[in-house]
């Protein structure tokens, strides 16, 4: 250190700083992005839970369309509704099932309420924004798809998803990847056709259309029959809005929906940190160089004395 004069010091400091700045530069853009409201003409699905009878035809259709492995039980076997995973929770999406129907016995309701669970295809998906290999993509059609050929398997998307949707093929040793509903993008949505589950549903529980039209329809249904629905379209604003939205006659928090998610997309909770990154990259080198110069002032003075 003694031999280090200011010039060589600056050289070293700049080289280090430049290397890091190069690494961090791409992040600067992120800090400035504001909320993305979704593609204007993206498609969506309105799910009217009051209409679902729990026949699980959607599950069977999904299994066939997505070429998923044979289920553990037949798709007309109602015993799956009583299955409980850890914590007494109902079935959830898995690597073998991109959609599942859950049954809720609601006190005071004559019949059980059935709830279809699958990826909600967020406008600003948490999975997408958390992925460090950019595997996810929100298509203009509205689907959240992913490229399994680049998935490293860090599973941050599963941590980030507020709806607990992405599953992972843990059973594979060679090629484990994330598994989730892609709204039948490859086989249907891309060609303007509705997802297989929507088409298969006998009850037309699900309405497929442009998201903005579905929103109007949803509010129309509520105002037409105010007694038949709670006045809330789940997914209209949750975590920045989702392509899949829900109508129910039972308050959503009673049937397993998280009603505390807020209206901000998940990325907005991360932005404070992301915004700080370029600041650290810029300020730290100067700040600590200054500290160094100050704390070594005596050495420097001594050197100057020696020279003169």
């Amino acid at each position: 250190m003694k031999k280090l004069n200011r010039r060589s010091f600056l050289k070293g400091g700049l080289a280090g700083g430049a290397a890091i700045a190069a690494v961090g530069a791409s992040k600067q853009a992120v800090a400035g992005t504001h909320n993305f409201g979704g593609y204007p003409d993206s498609m969506g699905v309105l799910v009217d839970l009051t209409k679902c009878v729990g026949c699980r035809t959607c599950e069977a259709a999904c299994n066939k369309e997505q070429d998923l492995p044979e289920p553990d039980k037949a798709f007309d076997d109602p015993s799956v509704f009583e299955e409980r995973r850890e914590g007494g929770l109902p079935r959830r999406t898995t690597e073998k099932a991109y959609t599942v129907v859950q049954k809720y016995d609601v006190p005071g309701r004559e019949h059980p309420l059935f709830r279809k669970v699958q990826c909600n295809h967020c406008n600003e998906p948490a999975c997408l924004t958390s992925c460090f290999v950019n595997a996810y993509k929100k298509t203009p059609e509205g689907a959240v798809i992913y490229d399994k050929t680049v998935c490293v398997g860090c599973r941050t998307c599963m941590v980030a998803c507020p709806f607990y949707i992405p599953a992972y093929s843990y059973s594979s040793a060679i090629n484990p990847v994330v598994k989730k509903c892609i709204m039948c993008y490859d086989t249907r949505l891309k060609f303007g056709r509705p997802p297989a589950c929507v088409e298969a549903c006998p009850q037309e529980v699900m309405t497929f259309g442009k998201r903005k039209d579905l929103l109007k329809l949803a509010h129309q249904r509520i105002s037409d029959k105010p007694d038949a629905y709670v006045d809330h379209v789940y997914g209209e604003n949750e975590v920045g809005g989702t392509a899949w939205m829900y109508l129910s006659d039972v308050p959503f928090d009673k049937i397993g929906y998280d009603t505390h998610l807020g209206t901000q997309p998940i990325i907005s909770y991360v932005k404070e940190f992301l915004g700080m990154v370029p600041m650290v990259l810029t300020i730290w080198p100067a700040l600590f160089t200054g500290f160094h110069l100050l704390s070594n002032r005596k050495d420097a003075l001594k050197n100057d004395d020696n020279k003169s």
């Binding site: 853009a29 958390s130 992925c131 290999v133 992301l274």
Partner: peptide, 10 residues
């Protein structure tokens, strides 16, 4: 395949 906007990328 770079996902520079992700925290894990950093």
């Amino acid at each position: 395949s770079l996902g520079p906007a992700a925290v894990l990328f950093l």
